[in-house]
């Protein structure tokens, strides 16, 4: 396992675009910390975003894992091009001739993808912990570890998404087309969902079916945290909107995503095995 990871790490790290994208990714994640700097005054009204409670434990786990997720597209480019490069340089064939089996090859890519998800999860954990310890009103150990399962949800979310990228990269061979394919997949799922919802079936049945679509399942794991903010909820209550929305990690979506992850990994291996290089 160490050998396979070290092979992939060398391929990615020595490639300038991939290295720059990876560094940018982690740099942008740290920028979440900059949100604390948002403060402005309107007359007598002092607004400091750090003080409205977004960095309170345990809410911070939810907030940070939700927003950190948006940056995953940087790593998606790295993953897709890591596969596309192997095809265009002819090194996929050469790696096999040099003695890597097709199974090992897929294994090394999958391990890399999981390692990326794990690295990102650890990074978000540390970042949130530090921000929380600085800004949170409650810093008792029990409060800190409450809802820490958002990190597990985040890890599953990234692993599933990156596995999808890897599968598309192996299937499509070219990075530009693969990224295009990913975007089309998202749009097509959304359109299908909308059609089912408004034209064919009613909302509940449509949602029940479409929760199994990979892109939906992945994004359903962690729901948006904004309406959970007490400030926002108070505003809602004032205009008469009482919400009974659930904000916990959606483990059903997580389970569906894990199934898709398995499908993508096995699919990657099947595609590569059948292909003549």
């Amino acid at each position: 396992m160490k050998r396979l990871l070290s092979i992939e790490f060398q391929k990615i790290w020595l490639n300038n675009p991939s290295r720059i994208l990876t560094i940018t990714y982690f740099a942008l994640l740290s920028l979440i910390a900059l949100i604390t700097a948002i403060k402005f005054d309107i007359g007598d009204f002092h607004f400091n975003i750090a003080e409205i409670g977004i960095f309170n434990f345990p809410y911070i786990w939810h907030f940070n894992t939700y927003f950190a997720d948006y940056f995953k597209f940087f790593l998606a480019i790295v993953i897709v091009s890591m596969m596309a490069n192997e095809y265009s340089y002819g090194t996929l064939k050469q790696n096999l001739i040099d003695g890597l089996s097709k199974k090992e090859l897929v294994k090394s890519k999958v391990l890399t993808v999981f390692a990326m998800a794990a690295a990102s999860t650890v990074f978000v954990f540390l970042l949130s912990l530090i921000l929380g310890l600085i800004h949170s009103s409650f810093t008792e150990f029990r409060t800190i570890i409450t809802d820490i399962d958002y990190l597990l949800g985040y890890f599953i979310k990234l692993s599933a998404f990156f596995s999808l990228c890897l599968f598309v990269g192996i299937l499509v061979k070219r990075s530009a087309f693969a990224l295009g394919f990913l975007i089309i997949l998202y749009i097509a799922t959304a359109i299908l969902h909308a059609i089912l919802r408004f034209k064919v079936l009613d909302t509940e049945i449509a949602d029940a079916i479409m929760q199994f679509a990979p892109t939906n399942a992945i994004s359903d794991i962690i729901v948006e945290p904004i309406s959970r903010l007490s400030a926002v909820q108070q505003m809602g209550a004032q205009v008469g909107l009482e919400s009974d929305k659930k904000f916990d990690v959606n483990y059903k979506a997580a389970a569906i995503s894990l199934c898709w992850t398995a499908v993508f990994i096995i699919g990657s291996y099947r595609v590569l095995k059948r292909r003549d290089l």
Partner: peptide, 16 residues
């Protein structure tokens, strides 16, 4: 295959 040395058609390496 690990005991075989082979070059096929054109040299394939990572250009970077």
């Amino acid at each position: 295959i690990k005991k075989v040395g082979a070059i096929i058609e054109r040299p394939n390496f990572y250009p970077y």
